[in-house]
């Protein structure tokens, strides 16, 4: 029987993130002996929140230094818990913090590691994507220990009642070598920049067409910017863009000032998850559309009826002038609210 270690770090408020609770639910579904391991400035609140998860014990590494997302301390804490748990399988959420730390921890433990796992079966078959969401593989490994990082959305979040949990603290010595890096804090994007908002119901993607010459032979970048921002505001939407649009600045062309590489969706950009996506002035070519893998309903507005969206990539393609359409959509959305 496997010994499953569910490994989690706390959030700034001492609790556990939704993705973490999803990973817990996935770990519970594996059967076997479950051990929970928590890392944070203080881990009691988090332990209590999962008191009923069925873990045979809860291990913890706590202290100020472990409240921060830092490779050196995160790796040391995870390594110590894994050693104490003597687990065969370690399950964690694919958060930015664990994604950074756990592969190195696997190296220290002599463990195998599978990241970005989108689904995990009871017999430990892991489904994950290859080639930027273009090929799907299901993999197995005989090697133990095995570290598995689960992407969000892979399982329902654990929703057991909180209780009083006993935490077995594991001591990790903080040497100067672990403190060469200081975490200063978080930096939000500049006020004028719009970014991908993971919680938005709809993703608006702006393509290079917005900055190209229009019918009158002129570019209308300022108008385009206003239309896009109006839509973001009135539809409470997340903003993405195609690579070609964020790259345009390199060619000395007029660009939309609120876009950066952070907005880029696709092959070298992000693969956001939203229930809906609206692509505008964008060709819908494969390297971009791979970033749409997790957008459920897809619509596009484009002047070219032959664009990539028409080829089974969007649910609806509107062949129309996005300037006119989005202006009208904004009007209607404002009226609705």
């Amino acid at each position: 029987m496997e010994t499953i270690l569910f490994l989690a770090h706390t959030e700034a408020d001492g609790g556990l993130a939704k993705a973490t609770l999803e990973a817990l639910e996935a770990a519970r579904a594996l059967g076997g002996v479950l051990i929970a391991g928590l890392v944070g400035a203080s881990v009691e609140a988090a332990a209590n929140s999962i008191a009923g998860c069925g873990a045979s014990k809860i291990l913890g590494v706590a202290g100020e230094a472990f409240g921060e997302s830092r490779y050196s301390t995160d790796a040391a804490a995870a390594e110590a818990i894994a050693q104490a748990a003597n687990a065969t399988v370690i399950v964690a959420a694919h958060t930015s913090r664990w994604a950074r730390a756990l592969p190195g921890v696997a190296q220290r433990l002599g463990a195998a590691v599978d990241t970005h796992v989108a689904a995990l079966s009871a017999d430990l078959k892991a489904t994950r994507w290859y080639y930027r969401q273009r090929i799907e593989g299901v993999i197995e490994r005989a090697a133990r220990p095995r570290v598995i990082l689960l992407d969000s959305g892979c399982a329902p979040a654990y929703a057991g009642a909180p209780g009083a949990a006993a935490v077995e603290l594991v001591n990790v010595e903080i040497t100067p070598a672990l403190q060469r890096t200081r975490v200063i804090g978080k930096q939000a994007p500049k006020a004028e920049q719009q970014t991908i908002r993971p919680d938005a119901a709809i993703l608006f993607v702006a393509g290079a067409g917005w900055t190209k010459k229009q019918k009158d032979g002129q570019t209308h970048v300022a108008d385009a910017g206003k239309l896009i921002l109006d839509f973001i505001g009135s539809a409470n939407s997340s903003l993405g863009s195609s690579k070609s649009l964020v790259d345009l600045s390199g060619e000395g062309q007029a660009v939309l000032p609120f876009l950066s590489h952070l907005n880029q969706v696709g092959q070298t950009g992000s693969t956001p998850r939203h229930p809906k996506g609206l692509a505008t002035c964008c060709h819908g070519e494969e390297p971009h559309v791979v970033g749409w893998r997790f957008i459920k309903e897809r619509r596009a507005v484009n002047l070219d009826a032959n664009c990539g969206w028409a080829r089974g990539k969007a649910d609806v393609l509107y062949v129309a002038d996005a300037f006119a359409v989005i202006a009208k959509v904004n009007e209607l959305l404002k009226a609705k609210s």
């Binding site: 790259d247 060619e251 070519e285 990539g308 080829r311």
Partner: peptide, 18 residues
């Protein structure tokens, strides 16, 4: 396939930047 689809097959057509 349509002419436009053919442009997208087996390596597709692309201008290089600049």
């Amino acid at each position: 396939v349509t002419h436009q689809d053919a442009l997208l097959m087996g390596g597709k057509v692309q201008a290089s930047g600049g």
